[in-house]
C-alpha cells in the first residue's frame, strides 16, 4: 500500500479533484453541445501522474468519479458510467505518455487525456445504447477537446512550475 505520507497527500489531492469535479458540474459551459466541458478534475489526475505513478493516479481518478457522482446524485446513472470509462481510459493513456515518452509537454498530454476521455465516453455510450451511431458525435467532441485539453494542460504547467519554485514539489514526492 501507499506510505502514510503519500496516503495523506493522495487524500488531499482526491479531495481537490472531487471538489473540482463537483464545482464544474455546477457551471456547465454555455455551448449547445452536451458533453463538452473543461475537465478541471483531470488536472489533479495528471498532477498525480507527474508526482507518483499509474496506480496512484488510477486510484484518485476512480475514487474521484465515485465521490463526485455520490455528491452530484448521478451514482450508477448513465453519466456516471460515461465519466468512469472516460476517466479510466484517459488515465491509462496519459500514464503511457508521461512515463514512456519525453516529447510532450503537459499541454499535449492533457489534450491526449481529453481526447481519450471522449473516446472512452463514446465507447461506453455506444455499449449502453447498443448503437454505434453515437460515434458521429466524436468530431464535435474532438473540436471541443482541443481548447479544453489545452487549457487544463496550461493550468497544470503553471501549477507544476509554481510548486517547483515554492519547493513543495520535492516535499510532495519525498517518500
Amino acid at each position: 500500500m501507499f506510505s502514510t505520507r503519500r496516503l495523506v497527500y493522495l487524500s488531499l489531492l482526491l479531495a481537490m479533484a472531487t471538489t473540482l469535479h463537483v464545482l464544474e458540474g455546477l457551471f456547465p459551459i454555455p455551448l449547445p453541445f452536451p458533453g463538452v466541458k473543461l475537465g478541471l478534475a483531470n488536472i489533479v489526475t495528471l498532477l498525480v501522474l507527474y508526482l507518483y505513478d499509474l496506480r496512484a493516479a488510477m486510484t484518485v481518478a476512480i475514487a474521484r468519479v465515485l465521490l463526485g457522482s455520490l455528491l452530484g446524485g448521478t451514482f450508477f446513472a448513465p453519466a456516471f458510467f460515461l465519466g468512469l470509462t472516460g476517466a479510466v481510459i484517459s488515465t491509462l493513456i496519459m500514464a503511457l505518455l508521461v512515463k514512456k515518452t519525453t516529447c510532450f509537454s503537459p499541454l499535449g498530454i492533457s489534450l491526449c487525456g481529453a481526447v481519450s476521455h471522449n473516446l472512452g465516453q463514446l465507447l461506453m455510450a455506444s455499449f449502453l445504447l447498443q448503437n454505434q451511431a453515437i460515434f458521429f458525435y466524436l468530431p464535435i467532441l474532438l473540436l471541443g477537446a482541443i481548447p479544453t485539453g489545452l487549457v487544463t494542460g496550461y493550468l497544470l504547467q503553471g501549477l507544476l512550475e509554481r510548486l517547483k519554485a515554492a519547493g513543495i514539489l520535492a516535499e510532495l514526492t519525498r517518500n
Binding site: 515518452t101 468530431p139 474532438l142 473540436l143 482541443i146
Partner: peptide, 24 residues
C-alpha cells in the same frame, strides 16, 4: 509547448474536421 504538442493539435484538428466533412 513542444513540437510534438503542435503536431498532436494539428492531428486532432484534422481528424475532427475530416469527421465533420464525412458526416456532412
Amino acid at each position: 509547448m513542444t513540437r510534438a504538442d503542435k503536431v498532436l493539435i494539428a492531428a486532432v484538428l484534422l481528424c475532427a474536421l475530416l469527421g465533420l466533412v464525412t458526416i456532412y
